[in-house]
Design a protein around this nucleic acid. Sequence first.
DNA 1: GCACTTTGGCAACAGCGTTGCGAAAGTAGA
DNA 2: TCTACTTTCGCAACGCTGTTGCCAAAGTGC
Lengths: 401, 401
Amino acid sequence: MNRTNGGTAGRTAGGAAGVTAGVNLLALRSHNTALVLDLLRTAGPAGISRLELAERTGLTPQAVSKITARLREEGLAAEAGRRASTGGKPRTVLRLVPEAGHAVGVHLDRDELLVVLTELDGRVVGERTVWLDLGAGAEAVVGTVVREVDGVVDELLKGGAGGGAESAGDAGRAAGARGAPTLLGVGVALPGPLDHIHGVLHRVTGFPEWDGYPLRDTLARRLGVPVVVDKDTNAAALGLAVLGERGSFAYLHLGTGLGAGLVIGGSVHRGTRTGAGEFGHQVVQLDGPLCSCGNRGCVEALCLAAIDRGDVPGAARVLGIAAANLAGLLDIDLLLLGGRTIAATPAPFVHGVTTVLIEHARREGAHEVAVPVRLATGGTRVVAEGAAQLLLGPVFGRADG
Amino acid sequence: MNRTNGGTAGRTAGGAAGVTAGVNLLALRSHNTALVLDLLRTAGPAGISRLELAERTGLTPQAVSKITARLREEGLAAEAGRRASTGGKPRTVLRLVPEAGHAVGVHLDRDELLVVLTELDGRVVGERTVWLDLGAGAEAVVGTVVREVDGVVDELLKGGAGGGAESAGDAGRAAGARGAPTLLGVGVALPGPLDHIHGVLHRVTGFPEWDGYPLRDTLARRLGVPVVVDKDTNAAALGLAVLGERGSFAYLHLGTGLGAGLVIGGSVHRGTRTGAGEFGHQVVQLDGPLCSCGNRGCVEALCLAAIDRGDVPGAARVLGIAAANLAGLLDIDLLLLGGRTIAATPAPFVHGVTTVLIEHARREGAHEVAVPVRLATGGTRVVAEGAAQLLLGPVFGRADG
DNA sequence: GCACTTTGGCAACAGCGTTGCGAAAGTAGA
DNA sequence: TCTACTTTCGCAACGCTGTTGCCAAAGTGC
């Protein structure tokens, strides 16, 4: 696994702003291999033929054969039957071998911890949920995360031998020489602004003790595997992107707060300081009511106030207007709604936001099509699954998911 | 020139949403060549040494030597003196040969036509301005554009032989076998929403006769060279990006209307239907005053109304709030202000917008740094220069500028 | 059973960046 | 002025990539 692709091989050391880097033959191979893996993943258990891979990648059939031969040797791909003949030799179908790699996704919420173990294709094969108080202090929370992650990994990747706490820190010993299960790493998603690049929390609203906490490095040291942290909305958007949403879309999350995850051209847009997606504190009413952030007229404040007084259509309308602002600015394909408040009464929200966007499109021009609005699928696990994708993504050529 | 890089070689035919494509050796060479050319362009007349190129690209010095040797053979690069020695053989400095390629940029405004001819490095070597009425009908306007473009090209690329109109359509014969000047194509920037991919106008506010006009194909047929069309704000943003603004930024244009051009990670973000950057009709006041678009409370309406009543600080504040919404959503590095209205009284606008953003940042957190606000440089030609970059960009590895 | 179509691997090949090495072009010191 | 050293940079051989030409394998249709 480790040599399948050289990680982000070929990336030049310097370039902070990720300007551009030269591509050598190693990077070329990594890219094409990841591309083929990605198509295999997308095809799912149904599989995909070599010639179809060639068409989709633009590579020659022979090149695809070479790549898939290597993947089969490494155990990442396998043959899976054949298609019906069209007058000649039938195409052999290839599929991803999901068990060849694993990733852990952690959804660290204000009052709950959800840990999932997924295979290469993103399918969840293990899950744990425990109650937890984010305000209980960094040490306690990190301890709980380490214990639960190790628990899931020990149980499902190491044959379930032995007990719990004493194996803490051993999670990383998976990448053995033999066909041992390989753990790519752990992705952690949590609320609030944070520095995705350095893995440091800025602040978690309501819990000042987390300010500046180096969560990624702490967890990586104690778990012994690579760790990536990200905002919960970004993880959710990433999870939805892998679950089938293509192109560019925004995931709007309405729960205790209002935030967004942006997927542009298939990958999460985080912005320069990885703070993008601050949707809730968009001002839509000049000199409006005071928001918790200190500003006036934020969508979040207006939306939550409407919900507090039982005015769901009003909340939906405000949300729709902010969504239309976003859609006009970025010209995206789709809006997805999610979060506890949406889940409580989904229909009026979808309807209300849709209505605003249709009106908006009508004013833009006769042949203008409104951006479709849908409920985010995937249920309560989507954030944790997306967190796992933070590790799985690079295998399939996605920069950070 | 034509064989320097195979254009966007290697791009698979199908993939509408530009998903991902396989990379073959030809594409690899194109990429690395474009990368080196881009660094040569950035270095300007001062030049850059081979070893520096190697460091910046991550390629080995020998690979850079091969690439630059090819570029020198093709006349795109040349030696330009040497640096001071640091104890051994001094580094040879290479520079771009700007005269090896040309592009035309056209700024088609409501009442004026500006045509520039630029060299590879973006420097303007010829310029024409004529008054023109966008409402005079498509045929008349297109005729004027063709005449002026041909005029500039004939005068400066073909030795200025002969007259004007009869050579219309000959502009494309430049790419001769000998060292004849090579015209890459013509970029056209104009106001109003349009389809960048297909080169078709949606509508130009106030001029319904342009609805659905296939401007790109019409011009390409009559000029005989590749033509690319884009919104004026996108062209301006592109021009500013080449003029030195790095990273991600938004260009906010306040003139007869209010629009934005978004540069994310060095390239223009246009969105799925190339309609991104609709900044002016962002709603910032629920149920506010009616806007020309039919909606209520758009920034554009509020901003222009404030200006109409002489309240520049008020206009700046409203603009600042909308800019803060944008900056929070995308997490960009920089905001640039431009357009006639800004140019009339720049200081209060920069000050007003800056103030709003600083207040916003202060509320976000103590160590939060506000997004800097600056006046867009480049003067009145920046849109036309950016339009030329629509053709120059691909030479340097930029997808569409 | 034969002709035909289609798949996909083997072998030779061209072209990319890489490595090893040496000539070229300077500086620093005797 | 000569020698030793440093640094740049091109030539040649190399490994590895995707590509091309060719042919065996595995089906269908008559």
